[in-house]
Design a protein around this nucleic acid. Structure first.
Lengths: 228, 228
DNA sequence: CTCTGGATAATTTGATCATATTCTTGGGGC
DNA sequence: GCCCCAAGAATATGATCAAATTATCCAGAG
């Protein structure tokens, strides 16, 4: 999926044009998405101002946006932290993801070209390589990329934005999956999705996506129990 | 639907506890949702600081949050304005709403109590009264409330939040519907939804909700053509 | 004498504001 | 018609105020 709320940026990356708050937002977003932050970790404004070499205002705005995305939670008092998911949160996310991402997969099926499928295949291969080499960061990145690229072909920017928001919510909790990373090999749902895309079978794609989502959320759930 | 990203507030409303940026956000949110702003209207920070009697920082944060919600759009240069929906935007919103709100309606069906249905009935009656008296603000408020209350019974906070975000996107465009307000009376889909709820028929409820959403979006679309 | 409990002080952090800087834009001069 | 300059608005910083958590200290009980 594409970055949501993407501020218009210069087409082919001139360097210094992006405002500071946007840079901070993108940086934190990536860090949250790829498990650089631990669930429960406190996020302080002044801590970020130091490490990112910017003032408080851009940091405040970025944090506020991430709270709005559900990527961070406001702790009642004024503290902000990375969310710790409970079982019902995971159920809830699973349900929401299933509703949205199955539909996106269904819609994408009739719109992907054979070349698109090859690209997805290549990403999935890279994902397998990351798994076999124990490259956790690579695994998370390629997995995210697989969904991102697939959804980009659905021609449904609004729904895709919403799906993207949901990923931010469980990003930090994916890190704990890393513990038993090579030990157990689950059935690869991405292969099923690719198969459905090749057959141009929307319902099958939606079904496979639903299984992939459920499997991912189950991993998070297992990591949750492990943590306790 | 409930206000998304609702900051924890004091249980039974002590007045002065909410931070300024939260107050500003809620105020602007309501104004956008109920058509106080016109599509295309420019939103400036300094304009709001004056009218709301707060500094720039809270206003900045509120605006940033609303941009993240899709309620305002960042115009590439540093300008912010109320979104003008084009035909494809409306299609897109219709599709996203259909996906999400039908599912919420489906889920709510098995969870509403007879008392809840009576409450929804009362809201719909109030809505009819607002229509017959030409009370535009009341119509918008009751219509929003009908969906809010129904969705609150679905026990799906994440999806409900997402649905809530979508409403913000077409809120300003609803105002133009007011022009031909009493002239044409469309079939009341809320009645169909209530009927489905009474029968506890989830699929029927989802279907009726889909029709209600489509009808609403069609109204927005007609208003769009009118404006040109 | 030691340990626990509560209350207060100190530090840390968030919220707000006033100010400086940078960028966009619109108008006037060449 | 193009370019330069000025005005206005947004971005970003640092300072200041308020709130909350943490630390400390003293009193009383065991």
């Amino acid at each position: 999926m594409r970055p949501p709320n993407s501020q218009p940026s210069e087409a082919s990356g001139s360097g210094a044009k992006a405002p500071a708050h946007e840079t901070v937002y993108q940086t934190l977003r990536k860090q949250i998405l790829f498990g650089d932050f631990a669930p429960g970790q406190a996020v302080t404004i002044q801590g970020l101002t130091g490490s990112l070499n910017v003032g408080m205002t851009p940091v405040r705005e970025a944090i506020r946006r991430l709270i709005s995305d559900g990527a961070l939670v406001f702790q009642g008092n004024r503290r902000v932290s990375v969310p710790i998911l409970c079982a019902s949160d995971i159920d809830e996310l699973n349900y929401a993801r299933k509703t949205i991402e199955c539909e996106i997969a269904r819609r994408a099926t009739s719109r992907v070209s054979p070349e698109d499928i090859l690209e997805l295949q290549a990403i999935d291969d890279a994902l397998d390589r990351a798994i076999s080499t124990g490259d956790v960061a690579g695994y998370l990145a390629q997995n995210y990329r697989f969904h991102t690229v697939l959804y980009s072909h659905a021609d449904a920017p609004v729904l895709t934005d919403l799906a993207d928001r949901l990923w931010l919510r469980f990003g930090p909790s994916l890190r704990v999956v890393c513990g038993r990373f090579g030990t157990q090999s689950f059935p690869d749902r991405h292969k099923d999705i690719l198969e459905a895309l090749r057959k141009a079978d929307s319902e099958l794609a939606a079904l496979a996506m639903g299984r992939d989502v459920a499997q991912g959320m189950e991993q998070v759930s297992l990591g949750l129990d492990e943590g306790n």
